[in-house]
Simulated scan of single mutants.
Amino acid sequence: MDPDAISAGDRVPHGGETDRDLLDFSANTNPRTPTGVDDAYAAALEESRRYPDDGYPAFRAAAADFVGCGPERVVPTPGGLAAIRLAMETALEPGDEALVPYPSFGEYAREVELQGATPRFVRYDDLTELGPTVLEPCALAVCCTPNNPTGDAIDPDALASFAARCADAETTLLVDEAFLGFTDRPSMATLDREHVVVARSLTKLFGLPGLRAGFAVATGERRAALETARRAWSLGTPAARVGTHCLRRETFVRETRTRVASERERLREALEERFDVHDSDAPYLLCDVGDRDVATVIDDARAAGVAIRDATTFRTLDSHVRVAVKDRTANDRLLAALGVRERADDDPETER
């Protein structure tokens, strides 16, 4: 990390509501957690009297099975963002350039800058079309799938083709799959290319953002660099044990994907009565509020007990909010807070 860049750096705004009296739709986390988490955590607390096994064999095996790679390729990290930073620390030097998508997760540009490198912004849906002229001067390219905050996932074939072009240009490709677990799309971890690093977060899919558990996946010299550079005991025992437990809950994951897809479509249809809603593969929806004042929309929802995300903090978005997709009861409260009423043919009560 570059000391000069740190002194000039700043924090990045995020979703996440600290007021426990508000229903939080500003953070895209699962409102449900797998059964057995409490027992796994309680057992891990007793084991926390010792240092963790720095090899994390059980966690690596569960993570590898989840994304479809060998356990030796998994590098445990305290959350997906830690995996992103680790990848950038090992790929970037001061003076380098990195391709960063927009509008997208604000931490990408911040982490690039903390390494003393320069972000080169590219429209997120144009990124995978880039060729050698743009790629060759860049040490790193970042993709987010599904993209945050728009929610659209990148076609796996298009991403694989882009990865091949990155390899030819000797550009490291960092693929952030923080929300990919909400879909049935394959992970780029199955591609097994030496220049590709995949960052995964457990805490969004399994509804445990405060746990801070995630991992990176890489191969060859890139994987060796990540493994050497990661901190010793990079996961606390509770995070490793609960994470391992969650990654093995296949039924929970299937049920979550089904619920999110169904509720996302229901929310989208209802919200389109008032806003322009972006198509999404993720557990959130990006809404253009048009000529309404964004701050007023947010304040009105807050007055009704619901927190939503101000999406104007994302690059180039000036009239947008983002809302998470929760369970049906919570989603109904969101619609009420936004002054949206479902069409009669969408209301199950009208079918009786």
Rank of each mutant, 00 (worst) to 15 (best):
S187F: 00
A216T: 02
D345S: 11
R322T: 15
R259I: 01
D24M: 08
A324T: 07
F314I: 02
E46P: 07
A270K: 09
Y284P: 04
R120V: 12
T29C: 11
G214D: 10
R254K: 13
T203F: 09
P31Y: 03
L335F: 05
R60G: 00
L86S: 02
P348K: 10
R268N: 01
H245R: 11
L202K: 12
D293Y: 02
A8I: 03
A218T: 00
L285P: 09
S104L: 09
V289I: 12
R50L: 14
A307F: 02
A324R: 08
S280D: 03
E272W: 01
R302K: 13
L159A: 03
R49D: 14
T18S: 15
A303V: 04
Y56P: 09
V340I: 05
D192G: 07
P132L: 15
D310N: 13
V12T: 14
A239D: 10
R185Y: 04
R60H: 06
R274V: 11
V67P: 10
P71M: 05
G339A: 08
A344R: 14
E177V: 01
G131N: 09
R309S: 10
I308C: 04
L335W: 07
D125T: 02
V74I: 15
C144P: 00
T35F: 07
G106L: 14
V325D: 08
D65F: 00
T35P: 13
A43L: 14
R259E: 15
V289D: 14
A158W: 05
A232H: 14
P71R: 06
R254D: 08
E136A: 12
A303T: 14
V253F: 01
T244M: 06
R343Q: 13
C144F: 05
V175A: 06
T228I: 06
P52W: 02
N148D: 13
P209Y: 08
V242P: 10
R328K: 11
E17I: 01
T150H: 07
S7A: 13
C144R: 09
E97Y: 11
N148E: 15
P76Q: 08
A163F: 00
T128K: 03
S161T: 12
L86G: 03
D2S: 11
E177T: 01
A337T: 00
H320K: 10
L211V: 04
F179G: 06
Q115A: 12
V196M: 10
R257Y: 02
D152F: 02
L247N: 11
Y284N: 12
V37P: 11
D125W: 02
Y108E: 12
P34H: 07
E221R: 14
P3T: 00
A282S: 13
L86A: 04
A5K: 07
S319D: 14
R230L: 05
G80E: 11
D347Y: 02
D291A: 13
V122A: 05
A307D: 13
L226R: 08
E265C: 07
L173C: 05
D157C: 04
V12A: 10
P283E: 10
R249Q: 15
F59T: 08
A311Q: 12
P149S: 07
A40W: 01
A261Y: 06
A216R: 11
F66N: 05
